[in-house]
Structure formats: C-alpha cells, structure tokens
C-alpha cells in the first residue's frame, strides 16, 4: 500500500490521462490507487459501519437467543460483519481494498457502540485478509460470483478460526469446528454471493461509473 501511495503522489499531475500514460505499463495504472478510489473506499467502509449497526439492531435478539441456547450457532450470523471486505474488493478492485475496507468498517462500527476494544483492529484485518487473498490470487482481474463467494467464505473461515484462538479457546474442538463451518457458510452466502449481487445492482444505477468496477 505504501508503495502505491508514493508512486502516485510523486506524480504531480495527479490521476489524469497523462498519469496513466506515464506509468510503467498498463498493469501498473490498473492497480494504482487514485483519490476517488481512496475516498469511495472510506465512505463505503463508513456505510458498511452503519449497515452493521442496523444489522446488529435487527439480528441482535436472534443472536442473543441463539447464543444463549447454543453458542456456536452465532457463527451463522457472522457473514453480516464480513460484507465490507468483499464489497470493498468488488467495488474498488485495487490491492489492499478488501483488507482496508473491512478494517475501517470494523473501526467505524466500534465507534457506533458495539465495543470489542482494540481487538476490532485485529478481527477486521484478519477477516479482510481472507477476502483479500482470494482477490489477490486472481491478480485483481476476476470479480464474478465464484470469486465473491470464495472471498466471503475465506473471510468467514479466517475470522472464525481467529476467534476460536482469541476468544473461544475454552470450547471443545467439536464445538469450535461447528462454529467455523457455520461462519464459513454464512460468509460465503451473506458476504459472498449477496455482495456480488449488490455490486451488480449498484453498477446498474451508474454510481460506480468513476471506478474501474463501473466501467
């Protein structure tokens, strides 16, 4: 991320037509962060923070009753907290977008009243990394339903495994496994295929026209 920042900012002309032409090749400019990418990413993360908050309000009673009766069931709700990573990756299409978006969204959500202390930074980064890895393996070239589902699933897997290590270390392995499977499925559906559909719907409104995902 540092690398791309310097390479763009040393270019005094800004993200103009010339910037693309002067870059070191078409691949470079495709993956370079422009101002509009950065600002949209941050605003997207904030919007996800607000949606998390509404999601928590809606599903909180469900989670509470599920968690009281059978704690691993709360894994089924996990996808709701993973949407920012896949959405950031699918909409911005730049290296690091998924990690940064999920991380920022986690911080923003923490500010709205769901407090997990400083560990939101860790959770956000780990979950975002799950999505990021999938996008990275395609070279940030493919953003179809399969890639999105895989990105959501891996975010769910990373997130739930890390939670088993950090929070649920006292649970027996069988319960931990159920939790991880639930979270991965939830990630694949809610943060994966649904976010792909959302991105497609957003594109048809024309609001993504300034971004590479809208062209």
């Amino acid at each position: 991320m540092n690398k791309t920042t310097t390479s763009v900012t040393s270019d005094t002309a800004g993200p103009s037509a010339a910037a693309g032409a002067r870059g070191t090749g078409p691949g470079r400019s495709r993956l370079q962060w422009r101002v509009v990418d950065i600002v949209v990413l941050a605003v997207l993360a904030a919007a996800c923070g607000v949606i998390f908050w509404a999601w928590s309000n809606l599903v909180y009673p469900l989670i509470t009753s599920a968690a009281v009766a059978y704690p691993p069931a709360s894994g089924l709700m996990m996808g709701g907290w993973l949407i920012a990573g896949t959405l950031g990756g699918l909409i911005i299409r730049k290296p690091g977008a998924a990690v940064v978006c999920e991380l920022l969204a986690a911080v923003f959500q923490a500010l709205l009243g769901t407090h997990f202390g400083m560990l939101v930074l860790v959770s956000g980064a780990i979950q975002g990394l799950g999505s990021e890895l999938i996008f990275a393996t395609t070279g940030y070239r493919r953003f179809g339903p399969l890639v999105a589902t895989a990105a959501g699933a891996l975010a769910g897997l990373f997130g739930s495994v890390s939670e088993c290590i950090i929070y649920y270390y006292e649970w027996p392995l069988a319960h931990q496994s159920v939790y991880v499977v639930f979270a991965t499925v939830s990630g694949a559906v809610i943060a994966g295929i649904l976010m792909w559909a959302l991105t497609r719907a957003l594109r048809s409104t024309g609001v993504l026209s300034a971004l590479s995902s809208g062209r």
Partner: peptide, 26 residues
C-alpha cells in the same frame, strides 16, 4: 444508503482533489 453515499463520495473526491488532496504536492 449505498447509492447515495457512493454518489456523495465521488463528488467529495472531486472537492478534495480540487483542494489539492494528494495530487498537487506529494
């Protein structure tokens, strides 16, 4: 919410760029 926010973000990016954000001086 997303549609409105993305629209606003795009306009805001223009505002910030015109106000020299990350492009005139490193």
């Amino acid at each position: 919410l997303l549609v409105q926010s993305l629209r606003r973000a795009t306009r805001l990016a223009v505002t910030m760029e015109v106000r020299g954000f990350g492009s005139v001086v490193a």
